[in-house]
Simulated assay, not measured.
Amino acid sequence: MIRYVLPVLAVFATTAQANENIADQYPGSALYSAPVEFIPGVFSAIGATAPPTYENSGHNNNLSFIVTGEGVVVINGGGAYVLAAALHDEIKARTDEPVVLVVNENGQGHAMLGNSYWAEKGVPIIAHEDAAAEFEDRGFQILEAMQGLNKEKAEGTYLQGPTETFSDAYIVELGDFRIEVRYLGPSHSAGDVVVWLPNQELVIAGDIAFHERMLPLFDDTNTLDWLDTWDTAFEPLNATYVIPGHGHPTNMDQVRLYTKGYLEYLRGKIAEHLEAGGGLAEAYYVDQSPYAHLDTFEELAAKNAGRIYEQMEFE
């Protein structure tokens, strides 16, 4: 189902570097970093390329928004009420236009827990139907984990799913922007979507694409399906600009290297390991040194290798 609603591209060079050792780059706000205008009208507050912590208030993904001339579209509810409120403060400092829509990129906490703030403001919130189901199923666990992490900064956050779901695409035309929220197929987690701006050749990729930090694999992440979605639906967008789910805005070459390239590399190493008769215990230690410079490598590399081994053992 496709849902239609509402009838000088220059890259901003930011000097801030991704570094998981920097606890907070924007001490005056709950946000990890201040929003930067990547191309005219499209802003993103880049999250920490590190696991969620009390210091970064759980802001370890990218929170983006589009100032269309006819209202603001926010991409990601945020990982807590406090983050959504902080993002709204930054929006109001840049435009008088109201927020007219919030898009949840998936059913994870960093995409949906801040919905509690936006719902109080009466803003419509959309997500893919699978993301909504994931959040409904695991919401209490997600909320409890955030509360343990954020302590008093969790105040005001409650479980609020999207107010509307879709299965294929949700398309909005506002001002100079045609905003296509698309489900391209299975990737990182249930109901991952991208926000494609065809007129600007820019994709807000969500967790289908990673940059500067190692991607994590979940128990239910099917890497073969992810690669198929990449090749058949994401790559054909032929985007000039990419705002990934994690890491600074960049281009297709970079996210291809650190997402598709990493998945293909690790699957190749595990395939060699399986062919040699290797077991799970040894699989954790396959060589991933070409990606050792990425943030969260120490936290994720061995886990990723084990999960791919368990998948490929039965492929």
Rank of each mutant, 00 (worst) to 15 (best):
N222M: 02
K260L: 05
D220F: 05
E201K: 15
D176M: 13
T223K: 03
A281W: 05
E212Q: 15
G245S: 08
R267D: 08
A271N: 12
W230I: 08
A233F: 09
H188S: 09
N251L: 07
A190P: 04
L202V: 12
T229F: 02
W226L: 01
H248W: 13
D207P: 01
P186R: 15
E264C: 01
S187G: 12
Q200M: 08
V255P: 00
P249A: 07
L197P: 09
F210R: 04
Y262F: 13
W226R: 03
G206I: 05
Y258G: 01
H246S: 14
P249R: 02
L224R: 14
A209K: 01
T223W: 00
G277N: 10
A190N: 13
D219Q: 07
G185M: 03
G277D: 05
Q254L: 10
G175Q: 05
L274A: 02
V193R: 00
R178Q: 12
L197M: 04
A271E: 15
I270P: 00
P186A: 15
G185E: 09
L197V: 11
K269G: 00
V193A: 03
P186T: 11
V195S: 01
R178F: 06
H273E: 05
D192T: 10
D253I: 08
L224Y: 12
E275I: 10
Y285N: 13
Y258H: 14
G175W: 05
S189H: 01
D231Q: 13
D192C: 09
V181H: 03
Y183S: 09
E275M: 06
V203Q: 00
Y258W: 14
H246C: 14
L197W: 06
L280M: 08
V194E: 02
L257D: 11
E264T: 04
E173V: 10
L184E: 09
Q200I: 01
G261I: 03
N199R: 15
E235H: 12
R256H: 07
V195F: 01
L184V: 09
L274H: 03
R256V: 04
K269E: 14
I179P: 12
Y183L: 03
E201Y: 11
A205I: 13
E272Q: 10
G278Y: 00
A205N: 02
E180M: 06
D225E: 12
Y285T: 11
H188N: 15
T250L: 07
G191I: 07
F218M: 11
E212R: 14
M252F: 13
R256S: 14
E275T: 13
L263S: 05
K260N: 05
T223D: 09
P198H: 00
N222A: 07
V242F: 10
F177P: 10
L184M: 11
F210G: 02
G261P: 07
Y183V: 09
D176F: 12
